[in-house]
Amino acid sequence: MNRRQVRGSQRISKSHGKRSENKKILIVTEGVKTEPQYFEGLAAHLNAQAVHVISLKPVGTGRDPMSVVREADSQREKERRNGDAFDSVWCVVDVDEHATLPAACTLAAREKMGLAISSPCFEIWLLWHYEDRLAWSTGGALAQRLKKFGVLGKNLPANFPYDRFVDAKQRAEKCAVIELKHKPPNPSSSVSELVSELELASKGKSPQSR
């Protein structure tokens, strides 16, 4: 697939043109390492406790938000043409200094895709698995703080506490309200919405319509 990285500890199974009733979720991320690793690990954790298996296909693009949304649309259309459409599509991006974020938000809304945005970056969501952090932060400061918990570089440690995703969601709720999706406060993350959908899917429940 050229330079794209298609990852997933659980392959999307097809058999004679049919697949199981498990929810099939596409997650396209801006990052090519940390984010796909996180969602693979979280899916594995949820599946270990659930009756139904999540079909999860994270794709890391390594590009700006608009490129992420376009890639998600392309992947969704390709699977639809193959007769095994995704039940839900999510894009995971950072605020950083991306000029295309407002346009990406507009396109994602029009195409009925979920958009999980972290400010200043995805690392704030990771840190919330370990501790509170409500002060304005830079990506560099978050990376330094994560090192204290064994998160080095772009790779997550084998003992990353995926089971603390509930703590992360609660900490995200303490942040200022996101009034403008393309201008979320620092810190903030709507990754919690995606995680909630994964929880529902792992229990065999359908997500609410966007």
Rank of each mutant, 00 (worst) to 15 (best):
K174Q: 14
T61M: 00
P58L: 04
A201N: 10
S55V: 01
R76I: 04
P65M: 12
P185R: 08
M1C: 06
V6D: 01
G140Y: 15
E40Y: 01
N22W: 01
I178N: 03
I27F: 07
G31Q: 06
S137Y: 12
H16W: 08
A109E: 13
T106P: 01
H52W: 10
G153K: 07
K203H: 13
D64I: 04
E77G: 01
N47H: 05
E97C: 12
L194D: 06
C121I: 04
E123R: 13
E199S: 12
A44Y: 00
L194E: 09
A109N: 13
A48V: 00
L115V: 14
E197P: 08
S118E: 12
S188R: 08
I12R: 04
L126T: 08
K203R: 15
H129V: 13
Q37I: 11
N159Y: 05
V51Q: 06
A116K: 10
Q144F: 01
N2M: 05
S55R: 02
A103H: 08
R11I: 08
S137K: 15
V68M: 12
A201F: 15
F122K: 08
A143H: 15
I27W: 05
S88N: 01
R70C: 06
E71M: 04
V53P: 14
A172Q: 09
Q75T: 00
K14F: 09
L127W: 13
S188C: 10
E79M: 03
K181S: 12
L46T: 12
L126A: 11
K169S: 08
A103Y: 01
N155I: 15
V92W: 03
Q208T: 15
Q5K: 15
Q170G: 02
L46K: 09
E97W: 02
A72V: 02
Q208G: 09
N82M: 12
A176L: 04
S202A: 15
W128T: 12
E199Y: 10
A104G: 14
I12M: 02
C175K: 01
E30H: 05
A72S: 10
A72L: 03
A44R: 07
D167T: 07
V69C: 09
K205R: 15
A43N: 04
E21C: 13
D73W: 01
V92F: 07
P184F: 05
V191Y: 00
N47V: 05
S190R: 10
R7V: 11
G83S: 04
L56P: 09
E30W: 05
T34I: 11
P120I: 13
Q144L: 05
I25P: 01
L115D: 13
K24M: 03
V195L: 03
S202D: 07
K57S: 06
